[in-house]
Design a protein around this nucleic acid. Structure first.
Lengths: 344, 344
DNA sequence: GAGCACTTGGTAAACGGTTTCCTTGACCCT
DNA sequence: AGGGTCAAGGAAACCGTTTACCAAGTGCTC
């Protein structure tokens, strides 16, 4: 079939041969290089490219230019709307700048984050975004710290969207303040006994939200209401509500550490014949679409913005600034699952 | 600083130099090549690799081996749990086989799918999964067809998880049967007037579901109830319910073309004081977690399986079989939003 | 002690691009 | 005619791997 060398389908070499020019020239017109090329030649190359269906190998290009145009994001679980929203923010601004976003699921486990970090380094990602919160004093975190350090040495930009043990610029929301504000809001509605369902134990985000709740209660000189274990899931929210129903007297209000937890709790309550918000006010945190769909009071965390801001920094190639932290604003979103106490 | 040549950080060359061996030898031990290497040498290389933090360039490797180990998936919107679940299925089985998954958002638009397809070709993806349904007689589809054809010529595996205009193996669910079964179930509960909220106009999935609904009604010799426009979103579901409330008499039951639509409708109904399922039975389709959270009757579509099966085929490198289609089973999931007619 | 097989290691050619550094003419000026 | 400038194009190095092929040494057989 072929004479001797057979350039790959749609490769630059094929285009060049077809147009009767050197590879260099073909490359130049296809990249709008500043190097001058005669109009006639340019046209021939363009036609050849069209004819053979030229598709520039991003791999080869990345190799030689030392720019992969890849952004990696390590999420707990892409099915969780929390992470999906963030990812969407990254992808949108990334794509606009010609970047490819690679999403890695870590199943909320540090070892897997480590694994995924390695993969991202192997693919020469220009930046990596850690979307999820870290665990307090995570023993498995030291290896991850080393990896991050190495990545930085190789010129990669590493960012996190929550509190983490390793050194890196952060884009966050003040979880403590968010929980404080929400609790404070419920108190202002006249509620006294306010229950709380926690997030996963040891997660910075969980701890901070709990702290915010406790601080608001203390400031109002209220006894912190019953506190339940949770893990950000519907199921544990549901379970907590059942335990609460088994208790002596129903609290005035209930806060879940995130939306999903609160929805699980609401479902259990409603199934038990409890009216919301007449019998008890319920609120969540994060403001995912779940909250909107259920018309639930919550506090908005700008997830999409998290992603967008992170992507912009990576694209700009922010040369480090390891220590800094930008805090994005949260916002209380009152909806129909909370009401003034005794409004029944 | 450096003598003359300075190998990149963590590169094979650096490892080789550090271990005092050739690059070839280093590569061999690091890849467990069958080529024999003396134990002492192997150890030196391994230590050197550890010391310099060797990270094999996936890019370079992909270039030379002609295997990128990349799977691409083109979704409508990663925030939509429908697509997120599918993606998760792909990622899980892909990762287990050492594959990287690249998710591309196409915003449910054919032009963007085309764009994303190009990107995936540029990155030498070994396989591409089209997760979303196509539009009936899409004029923009011809260019996409050409792209797909080209991709196939280059050895890529292209699959779709719904009906599409271009030729490619499909992994699907029988949407017509699914809608038929659901409708049939409602009829068996004694409902006579059954309303339907459609999906996006022109989408194969929408059309098929509508057809299934109509077929079941006709077979039961029932007049198809009011039919509303929709687009798979909460908002249009909500709007449709409002229009329905403005109508003469409330139907016995309501089917939304997907879960989100039905939830929007339920919210509107409840806000208007309508009890579900006492006053009207409501059901959705797909069985996303949304349906579970709201304890809504629906028909399950095995999204995760879609992804898993697709990924397995790509990894196996299925040499085409352009025509074939595998149909995964759907399953009716009765929950608390539907009940026997007059059960009030 | 020549011939041979096997072990161990290195050399160099890919892969598909980008980019630096030439070479070649054409043109202009003096 | 000689020299300089500039437009246009090509040759080749390089990015970091894998791998086909070759070379040297060892130990064995006959």
């Amino acid at each position: 079939m072929s004479e001797r060398s057979k350039p790959a389908k749609g490769s630059l070499a094929e285009v060049a041969r077809q147009a009767g020019v050197s590879i260099a020239t073909a490359s130049r017109v296809l990249n709008r290089s500043s190097h001058p090329v005669a109009e006639a030649t340019r046209k021939r190359v363009l036609e050849a490219a069209e004819a053979v269906g030229y598709s520039p190998s991003a791999l080869a290009r990345a190799l030689v230019t030392q720019r992969s145009r890849i952004i990696g994001v390590i999420v707990g679980d892409i099915v969780d709307p929390y992470f999906a929203e963030i990812t969407r923010g990254i992808e949108d601004v990334g794509a606009k700048a010609g970047y490819l976003t690679i999403v890695c699921n870590a199943d909320r486990r540090t070892e897997l984050e480590e694994e995924q970090m390695r993969v991202l380094v192997d693919y020469h990602a220009e930046g990596v975004v850690f979307a999820g919160s870290g665990y307090v004093n995570d023993p498995k975190g030291t290896e991850l710290s080393r990896l991050v350090e190495r990545a930085r040495e190789r010129g990669m930009t590493v960012l996190s969207l929550a509190h983490r043990d390793f050194e890196c610029p952060r884009i966050v929301v003040d979880n403590r303040a968010a929980a404080y504000d929400l609790t404070d809001y419920l108190i202002s509605l006249g509620h006294r006994r306010i229950a709380f369902i926690k997030g996963p134990a040891g997660l910075y985000a969980s701890e901070h939200r709990l702290e915010g709740y406790l601080a608001a209660m203390e400031e109002a000189q209220l006894e912190p209401g019953p506190i339940f274990e949770g893990d950000f899931t519907y199921d544990l929210g549901h379970a907590a509500a059942l335990r609460m129903l088994g208790g002596a007297e129903l609290p005035d209000a209930l806060i879940g550490a995130n939306d999903e937890t609160s929805i699980g709790a609401m479902t259990a309550l409603r199934q038990a014949g409890v009216s919301i918000p007449e019998d008890i006010s319920v609120a969540g945190m994060t403001d995912t679409r779940l909250a909107r769909f259920t018309d639930m009071t919550t506090v908005n965390i700008p997830l999409y913005q998290f992603g967008a801001v992170a992507a912009r920094r990576i694209i700009a190639g922010e040369s480090d600034g390891a220590g800094d932290e930008v805090v994005l604003p949260h916002r209380l979103v009152p909806r129909s699952t909370t009401t003034r106490r005794g409004a029944r």
